[in-house]
Simulated scan of single mutants.
Amino acid sequence: MIIDAGLILAVIGAGLAVGLSAIGSGIGVGIAGATGAGVIAIRPEKFGRALVFQAVPQTQGMYGLLIAVLILLSTGVIGGDGGSVPLPLGLAAVGAGLATGIAGLSAIGQGIAASAGIAATAEHDTAMGRSLIFAVIPETQAIYGLLVAILIMAFSGLLTGDPTATEATGLAAIGCGLAVGIAGISAIGQGIAAAAGSAGSAEHEGSFGKNLIFSVIPETQAIYGLLVAILIMAFTGMIAGDPTADLAIGFAAVGCGFAVGLAGISAIGQGIAAASGTATTAEHEGSFGKNLVFSVIPETQAIYGLLVAILIMVFTGMITRDVTATLAAGFAAIACGFAVGFAAISAIGQGIAASAGIAATAEKEEMFGKGLVFTVIPETQAIYGLLV
């Protein structure tokens, strides 16, 4: 029996797209639904509004379904003869599935924000509009994933039926998917911050603008992932239609994806700090600047991931197309991505420390400097990863 590796990979890509995003949407919808059920038990007239908030995290599952169907249609699994699929297109399908599927986990953060919106609206009728804004903010990570998935399918020839991808650009597509997909998990941190913003704005309408600033801070990690994904597509020739055939570059692209993607999870720590900053600023308006300082500190781990991703592109010759890397160097790039990426998750601990620093500074302003010291200490783990 002949095994068509390309077709198998394409089907796996479709499964990743719809399966992972369904996990995110299911959890997010469940979080919002649990709060909604509790609210309508006391305020049954709020059923309609609660249902609106619960529906918000559903979209990620729809994005995953859309990409899965497009993959199956373009490879002939649906409505075709189910014939052979070139291996590069199978790899590209996996990249598209990872981009949409992992980014679909952003629905968990959206569910957290939507849950807070339901609670805020139950107590304050006028909070509906502002709370919806906070609830939809974590949607952007899923949109980035959807965008990259469509670009991968277009530039590889999956959508056009004119395959141009090589095995190297197929691997690069996986790197793109990892970059934007894993970085999309930053939406959990954003959801934590947005939930605090929703609650704070309901109690103090004048704090809406400042709360919005705290809520968008964890967005930057997702933007880094989107940026690296686009750079990979550009420098491997996917966008220009002149794809590289060097496998070392393909593996290096995977390393870039892991570096910036895993480092993007640092946004969870940033969200924890930003949520504390939101709550404290509502009570002490003069503390906004100091709270912002604490909230941005966990950003550095994401910057390390972005830096390593760019260095990989430079030293492997991906940017100049003057390839000097060997296959071993490509695998080394993946190891570099793991080192800086996993180490960057230490930012969650840093966010917890920053949150306490914000609270301490709110009580006594002179604690600002000492609070910063406690906050930066967890940074050392990320520096070790960067050093390696």
Results as ranks from 00 to 15, higher is better:
residue 130 R to V: 14
residue 250 G to P: 13
residue 83 G to R: 10
residue 204 H to C: 02
residue 211 N to F: 08
residue 94 V to N: 03
residue 153 M to A: 09
residue 208 F to C: 13
residue 301 Q to G: 08
residue 219 E to F: 11
residue 273 A to D: 04
residue 137 I to K: 08
residue 342 F to R: 00
residue 170 G to L: 06
residue 258 F to M: 12
residue 74 S to G: 12
residue 118 I to R: 02
residue 35 T to H: 10
residue 180 V to Y: 00
residue 181 G to K: 03
residue 102 I to A: 05
residue 293 V to P: 12
residue 161 G to R: 03
residue 165 A to R: 11
residue 39 V to C: 10
residue 206 G to N: 00
residue 67 I to H: 00
residue 217 I to R: 10
residue 225 G to T: 07
residue 364 K to Q: 10
residue 262 L to W: 10
residue 216 V to I: 15
residue 12 I to C: 02
residue 145 G to S: 04
residue 34 A to N: 15
residue 148 V to C: 03
residue 142 A to I: 06
residue 118 I to A: 01
residue 272 I to Y: 01
residue 154 A to R: 06
residue 79 G to Q: 04
residue 136 V to S: 09
residue 53 F to E: 00
residue 274 A to P: 09
residue 77 V to F: 12
residue 233 M to Y: 11
residue 17 A to K: 06
residue 68 A to I: 01
residue 224 Y to H: 05
residue 10 A to I: 00
residue 376 V to D: 12
residue 262 L to I: 09
residue 360 A to I: 05
residue 344 A to I: 09
residue 13 G to L: 10
residue 117 G to T: 01
residue 186 S to P: 05
residue 207 S to R: 08
residue 215 S to K: 05
residue 224 Y to C: 05
residue 327 L to N: 05
residue 111 G to S: 04
residue 373 V to C: 09
residue 333 A to H: 08
residue 382 A to D: 09
residue 348 I to G: 01
residue 45 E to R: 11
residue 157 G to D: 12
residue 297 I to P: 03
residue 224 Y to Q: 00
residue 359 A to S: 15
residue 86 P to K: 08
residue 167 E to N: 14
residue 79 G to W: 11
residue 158 L to C: 12
residue 318 M to P: 04
